[in-house]
Amino acid sequence: MSDKIKITLTVNGTAMTAEVEPRRSLADMLRDDLRLTGTHLGCEHGVCGACTVLVDGKPVRSCLMFGVQANGASVRTVEGLADGDRLHPLQQAFWENHGLQCGFCTPGFLMLAAGALEENPDMTDEEIRDVLSSNLCRCTGYQNIVKAVRLAAEVMKAGPAPQATRS
């Protein structure tokens, strides 16, 4: 069980090697081996989506994928979303529109929305709501999450103009 396998991958833009047990999930590998604890585990059944990360640009339930399956892949987690202290438009919009309360599901929603918007920057409101129904939030009632993603989509389409940050 404990024979480890060596893999190489890119995490948040940094190339690295990791040695993981074959039975270790990608989520556990990120959290326990790479100390990226922003990825949260809400159910480990692939339902709640709190563990959503981007693998080669696509939103993935990291609880349902083995770490070794990420060999050669590019993985992005919530820690890679902000540019230093400058929040990603999605993070900024979640902040300004109260798109989070306890914050536990938030990294999963951010990565889900980031992946979906990168694939289709022109999602309709219905499409946004449909995509966001992949993940569960128990605090917000979703309306501020939907609103934040909609507003962030507009900002992201407007291009990479420098974002004002709050201090």
Binding site: T39, L81, L87, W95
Partner: peptide, 8 residues
């Protein structure tokens, strides 16, 4: 919020 949003 800022720390929660950054995964911290």
């Amino acid at each position: 919020d800022p720390s929660l949003l950054k995964g911290h």
